[in-house]
């Protein structure tokens, strides 16, 4: 079995499901209001994607016009929140994880607190985040930062703790100072773990952004599919969901490329 024909079978399965879904609609077995057929979703998705106004050279460049569609604006809003929250969470988690991994005392000091906080799902912070930050981007970014924080932190700690002692001995033998050992040995040696944490973290951030948008803001993909429900636009709900899926896939692929580049020295690469 070649890889090409396996992939072809995968595409075939998707087409078969789309065909079945379309047929079910055509035969009138399900109400199109409840489950619109794929072609209706595709049409809606296009409307959602395309600019709402005709092109007007006075109001800006052609690119701005092309990006003025509601879907693109929503996607950019969601991505902005994911990145802002993810970067914030990671920037907090990374130094803390490196310290906790490297120092037994700091680990013993902070670990009990972390173990209590860690099981609280980011979603549970919603009420508090609205009390603290009101509505809009700040509470959403706060929630996303919490979502990204713990996976990056836990993996960074594990990564530093897993650094093989022989690397430290070899570096000390070469005369490396503590800071050189930290930056040139401990940090690169724990990158496989750190990147795994970041990959999980950005996945969590993407889940949290959708929920946060349903509650705290009035744009973004999460907001849009909830809004569409109120108008009973099930085609738009599905179009929004598919977009969420595609963007999630794109983010994961990008992380995987970054992974493969940074870890090209590593045995057993993930693909």
């Amino acid at each position: 079995m070649t890889e090409g024909s396996q992939r072809f079978k995968g595409v075939l399965l998707i087409l078969a499901i789309l065909g079945l879904w379309e047929t079910v609609g055509l035969l009138g077995w399900v109400n199109a209001k409840v489950l619109p057929p794929p072609h209706a979703v595709a049409i809606k998705w296009w409307e959602y994607l395309a600019p709402q106004q005709p092109y007007d050279p006075d109001s800006g460049s052609r690119l701005t016009w092309l990006l003025s569609g509601e879907l693109i604006q929503d996607a950019m809003g969601s991505l902005y929140r994911v990145l802002a929250g993810f970067i914030m969470g990671t920037l907090l988690a990374l130094p803390m994880g490196l310290l906790m991994g490297a120092s037994r005392q700091i680990h013993q000091l902070c670990n009990p607190l972390l173990q209590i906080l860690r099981p609280i799902p980011p979603i549970a912070y919603i009420p508090l985040s609205i009390l603290w930050f009101g509505l809009g981007n700040p509470p959403a970014i706060f929630l996303i930062a919490i979502g990204a924080f713990f996976p990056v932190l836990m993996n960074t700690i594990a990564g530093v703790q897993a650094v093989d002692g022989i690397f430290l001995r070899a570096a000390r033998n070469l005369g490396a100072s503590r800071s050189t050992i930290f930056l040139r040995v401990i940090l690169p040696a724990s990158t496989p773990y750190i990147l795994t944490g970041m990959r999980i973290g950005i996945g969590t951030a993407f889940i949290v952004v959708i929920v946060a948008e349903m509650i705290a803001v009035n744009n973004g993909l999460g907001f849009r599919i909830l809004e569409a429900r109120e108008y009973f636009w099930s085609d738009k709900i599905i179009a929004g969901m598919l977009t969420i899926g595609l963007i999630g896939l794109a983010i994961d692929q990008a992380m995987s490329l970054l992974n493969n580049h940074l870890l090209r020295w590593h045995r057993g690469l993930e693909h």
Partner: peptide, 20 residues
């Protein structure tokens, strides 16, 4: 009193830095 580059050590497990 401590390790130092005046006494270079070669380990059985090579101990090369795999990221370099």
């Amino acid at each position: 009193t401590q390790p130092g580059p005046d006494r270079g050590m070669v380990f059985q497990e090579y101990a090369l830095f795999p990221w370099m």
